[in-house]
Amino acid sequence: MNIKDLELFITVAKLGSFSKAAKALEMRRALVSRRIADLEIQLGAPLFTRTTRVMALTDSGKRYLAQITPLVSQLNHAGDVFKHRHDNVQGKLRIGLQPFVDKLIDKHIANFVHNYPQVQLEVFIVPGQHQDIKRLNLDCMINAGEVSKGNISKQKLMTFERKMYASSLYLEKSSVIETIDDLHYHSLLGYRNAEGVLEHHWHFQHTNVTANYKIICSDYNSLYHFCLGGAGITLLPQIIAIDAVENQQLINVLPELSAGFTDINIFSPKDAALSGVAKVFIEHLCEMVN
Rank of each mutant, 00 (worst) to 15 (best):
N2K: 15
K4P: 06
D5C: 03
E7Q: 15
F9S: 11
A13Y: 08
K14S: 15
G16R: 13
G16Y: 05
S19Q: 11
K20S: 14
A22G: 04
A22K: 04
L25I: 08
L25F: 03
E26R: 11
R28S: 04
A30E: 08
A37M: 09
Q42G: 02
Q42C: 06
L43F: 05
L43P: 12
P46D: 04
L47S: 06
T49V: 08
T52Q: 08
A56N: 13
L57G: 09
T58N: 06
G61L: 11
G61Q: 02
L65H: 11
P70E: 03
V72F: 14
V72M: 14
S73Y: 11
N76S: 14
H77Y: 14
D80R: 14
K83M: 15
R85A: 10
H86G: 15
H86T: 10
H86R: 14
H86E: 11
Q90H: 13
K92V: 02
R94C: 04
G96C: 02
F100R: 00
D102P: 00
L104P: 04
K107G: 02
H108Y: 10
H108K: 11
I109P: 00
V113W: 01
P117I: 00
P117F: 03
L121W: 04
E122R: 12
I125D: 01
P127Y: 03
P127R: 12
P127D: 06
G128K: 03
H130K: 02
Q131W: 02
Q131C: 01
K134P: 00
R135N: 06
M141F: 00
N143M: 13
A144I: 11
E146Y: 01
E146V: 15
E146W: 00
S148W: 03
S153H: 10
K154A: 09
Q155K: 13
L157W: 00
F160R: 07
A166R: 04
A166W: 05
V176R: 15
T179P: 02
D182Y: 07
Y185T: 13
S187I: 01
L188Q: 12
G196R: 11
V197K: 15
L198W: 03
H201M: 10
Q205K: 13
N208F: 09
V209H: 15
N212C: 09
D219N: 15
Y220C: 06
L223E: 05
H225W: 06
C227S: 09
L228F: 00
L228C: 02
G230W: 05
L236K: 08
A241Y: 01
I242S: 11
I242E: 12
N252S: 07
P255E: 03
A259S: 15
G260M: 07
F261I: 05
D263W: 11
I264P: 03
I264Y: 01
I266N: 01
A272L: 05
L274R: 15
S275R: 11
F281N: 03
I282H: 09
M288N: 12
M288I: 01
